[in-house]
Design a protein around this nucleic acid. Sequence first.
DNA 1: CCAAAAGTGTTCTTTATACACCCATGT
DNA 2: ACATGGGTGTATAAAGAACACTTTTGG
Lengths: 231, 231
Amino acid sequence: MTENKKYEYDYWRPAVTVDNVVLNFDGTHLRMLLIRRKNEPYKDQWAFPGGFLDEDESLEEAAQRELKEETGVNKKPFIQIGSFSRVDRDPRGRTITTAFLTLTRSNETKIKAQDDAKEVSWFPVHNMPALAFDHEEIFQKAKLILKILFNLSPIPFLLMNDLFTLPEMQRLYAEVYEHDFDRRNFQKKFISSGMLAPVAHDSKERGNAPTFYRFNQGGFYAYQKKKFHIG
Amino acid sequence: MTENKKYEYDYWRPAVTVDNVVLNFDGTHLRMLLIRRKNEPYKDQWAFPGGFLDEDESLEEAAQRELKEETGVNKKPFIQIGSFSRVDRDPRGRTITTAFLTLTRSNETKIKAQDDAKEVSWFPVHNMPALAFDHEEIFQKAKLILKILFNLSPIPFLLMNDLFTLPEMQRLYAEVYEHDFDRRNFQKKFISSGMLAPVAHDSKERGNAPTFYRFNQGGFYAYQKKKFHIG
DNA sequence: CCAAAAGTGTTCTTTATACACCCATGT
DNA sequence: ACATGGGTGTATAAAGAACACTTTTGG
């Protein structure tokens, strides 16, 4: 069996891939995970980690598997960004891809180039290199979805560590919306929203150290329902 | 060449389909377009119109083509709902589908069963029949996306006729969110939002006849940007 | 003459915005 | 001692929620 195994179908079928837009926030910058491609096409260019769908897995499972294989990051995707199917989007032939958004916390994410990836690195979202395939289009859509979701989901908390401060959180919002918010109003809004639970201070009063908070899921859902009529 | 044409690939590939969730508002009820399937599997059951992706078209183009072929409705999809890929979702074998949301205006939509459709009909979203495949799952996701988009897009106006009244619009919102809004506050909110342009009354004063409005796109974008920080 | 549907108005409460001050830390 | 970053406060404007009245049409 040295010759290629062949798959035969009565009708034409496209190749099906998945791609992962993996986000992470280091306390200052919002970053995306990119791999440098080991193989053609777009050899040596940066791209979102991804690969081909296998026979026994859903798109979500494929995304998680490919992400782990190429970067060592093992995390379920959070949501779909969308499917991309321009006829000429892959020089190898007709390929459609479904892109996923994955959110990671900086204190639980170790990356390591493996498999089809020659190199793996985080890039600040406002300083991205040229991307392979139609990944620039995927990137733009990911940013739009991020802005929308930041309005109405607990998505910011999936990027923060378990304990976090409001100044940190505000830097994250500034990164996403690309403008600053008033610090005092920002704090007031979040504290009064009920979606934060303050963590008891250390007995040693640290003076001006920022207060740590934890995400309060119940409070968030109440807020969401009231504000957006979404249960 | 009487034998089947065969397509051969080095690697396994799934079949790829598209489905259309087509919405329409008749002034009272929000409705979805379903076809009764002519062929197995799920013969004679109701399903969203859709079919297989062809070699020379994007998913969006395939969705539009299939919708026209089966129902006579010729309208570009508005957005993707998502891709569905459960391994066992199609008894014929591994198939993934991408579902689209299409919005139509009742005064521009004629339907006619054709092709794979034995019958075509509108169903009120709150009175749907059992659906084929995993279309119930698609239906649920479509409803969620609808609620989200109603908060932040001009999507409601794509369902209303060019000229519409606020009471009509309010009935549409009630259908989507499954609860009533206060008529006076509802009107005030929309009128003050700047996204409506009133249409001059007929010279004949009609007394209590509702006022007609037109959608004002510029006003909408200003509102959206201010409220959601989305440009 | 009454019910139904449409327009308009007022008050109160809640959020959003704009802006100022104090305190602790590190240099 | 001063710049930095962090917490808190207040006054005004805008938006949302609750609620009542008037008009016209059709039966």
